[in-house]
Design a protein around this nucleic acid. Structure first.
Lengths: 118, 118
DNA sequence: TCATATAGGGATAAATTAATCCCCTATTGT
DNA sequence: ACAATAGGGGATTAATTTATCCCTATATGA
């Protein structure tokens, strides 16, 4: 695994949240798990732009941060299920607020973002 | 300026928010500007962990995304003031929700994050 | 005359994150 | 025998983001 060379700042709430929520797909993973899409293959189908590899990595980090828990069923073919921990559930309203803002200003945001890409 | 090589996904609200809010210091900049710290040097003092360079870059992006506006007073020594646009103000409750969650679980988050750094 | 404050930016290096590529396990169905 | 399905991971490269270093300008105060 990658080992940090710079110790992160953990001064305020925003720093702390950043540490667990930064990551291109993390909020979406939490969101879809909360919606009941528990298995890795389901999550991959919900987020086709990400590779399985990255999803695995980000899921593992979410697990280490105790936001999700993982159950591995000892069956063949393998079966795995993720679910939110109680701690992870407390994040849902926050993610919801973020997503709602994005949805509300969707048109405007899309235009602004595209404009900046030349 | 850096020119992207991969077109970002802009599928859902979360993608869109990410485009304007990703950036290590952006939420803090918006927050402090909202609190009335308008001048670059003030902002730098509020965020001493960031270099002026980075703050300038991120402020510029916030400006291009119409979240903040910038006034340059033609005086010497130079004077500049940032303020939130109406659009930018709509983000404050969202940032607030994020920061509050971080503050609420500060102890736990700090412990979890530090544990993962070995 | 020299340091300080104010605001800014180019060029480059370093750090971090994400993407690519390829490989493994074991069972069921064709 | 072989493909498909399910879940996973090492090694490496590419992309992106931050940090460093250094330089510009002008006025004021010591």
């Amino acid at each position: 695994m990658y080992e940090r060379k710079i110790i992160p700042n953990l001064n305020c709430g925003l720093d702390l949240v950043g540490e667990v929520l930064y990551g291109k797909w993390k909020m979406r993973l939490l969101w879809f798990i909360n919606e009941g899409h528990k298995r890795p293959s389901e999550l991959q189908r919900k987020i086709p732009d990400a590779t399985r590899r990255v999803l695995n990595i980000q899921l593992k980090e979410l697990e280490e941060h105790e936001l999700v828990s993982k159950i591995i069923y000892p069956v063949v073919p393998p079966k795995v299920e993720y679910s939110l921990t109680d701690f992870g559930k407390t994040l849902i309203p926050v993610i919801s607020a973020i997503g709602n803002w994005g949805d509300e200003y969707e048109e405007r945001l899309r235009a602004l973002i595209l404009k900046r890409l030349d």
